[in-house]
Design a protein around this nucleic acid. Structure first.
Lengths: 174, 174
DNA sequence: CTGCTAATTTGACTGATTCTAAAAAACGGG
DNA sequence: CCCGTTTTTTAGAATCAGTCAAATTAGCAG
């Protein structure tokens, strides 16, 4: 799937959502689609500016807000560095995020338990769930193993400029 | 249980954690113990200052960080207004938080599913979970009912000065 | 082409949290 | 009870992600 077809699809999605199709919006969506990691506004801004100087940070923020509003992207928070908003496109299946405190890598995990919890709580207490913010942290198998030997310094490489890669993992069946 | 016995217990807890016992720390812990709601640093600061002017906001922040470090208090984020850190003492049983978008109230919910998810994921993927950040939002039964009639304005009373009460709820069995 | 409207830009602003350097207070030994 | 050492507190300045505002620009209907 080349850049052109991404642009074309995004163009349709934007139009369908009743949003104007602007170069900036296309660019932001394109960057998010291409990314294999979770990006924050600043990272998106940097990448966008490289390709088209007619983008400002404020526009990236506003664009992300719009895209989120119409459901094209989703906002995430990670346990560490909870104050930064990360974004990903929302076409992927339901998943949650696990941040490794050793290496900083973000692992996507799949489990039906969260949805199950919501259903049960909804039924038992009459609550209506509209949104959940779920994130986990701990150690990935590699870092856990390394922890056996020397005591691990708990300070992960706080990815400034080098954002943690996202790793998908098989799901756990309910 | 009077104020004195709280102070005495906290005094021991602090000493046991290897922390110096200062009036400010006792006061912060006391305020948290007495609170029936989740407080942020500023709210704690205001209450502390009323009782003892020798407290600064910076100290409240640093004290909370210390207390969290040794496990006496826990930090929470709520879905909306995720930029604010809320605190509660950590002697309560495992629970999660549900924020009502209608009235702003925070409901404590109990479910074994989250722990179950962590166990399963841990077993399946070799991950070690050390911490999780879980919060839900949606509508409480009352606000959900009200939503049937008129379309609900989704802007909840963003508790400045009046923080949402915490309501405990029965747990859902596994 | 003209004008209307929504979108963008730049730069200033906000507000929660953290840092800094100097002053004060707590602990342990004498 | 007093002292010296070490930690803590203080007040104010700094930081940093995110937001807002005024002026500018672009898209599109007529």
């Amino acid at each position: 799937m080349g850049t052109e077809s991404i642009r074309e699809r995004v163009r349709q999605q934007l139009a369908q959502a009743g949003l104007r199709v602007t170069p900036q919006r296309l660019l932001v969506m394109e960057i998010l689609e291409e990314a294999d990691e979770h990006l924050d506004a600043e990272a998106i801004y940097e990448r966008a500016r490289d390709r088209d100087p007619r983008v400002s940070l404020a526009t990236v923020y506003r664009t992300l807000a719009k895209l989120k509003e119409v459901g094209l992207v989703e906002q995430r928070y990670f346990a560490r560095d909870h104050k930064r908003e990360y974004y990903e496109t929302s076409h992927k299946e339901e998943h949650y995020h696990f941040t490794c405190l050793g290496c900083g890598k973000v692992i996507e995990v799949h489990t039906p338990r969260i949805a199950q919890a919501q259903e049960e709580l909804s039924k038992a207490l009459g609550l209506i769930f509209t949104h959940a913010c779920i994130c986990f942290e701990g150690f990935c198998p590699e870092c856990a193993a390394r922890r056996q030997e020397g005591p691990l310094r708990a300070s992960p490489p706080t990815a400034r400029g080098g954002f943690p890669r996202v790793v998908a993992s098989p799901s756990v069946k309910g």
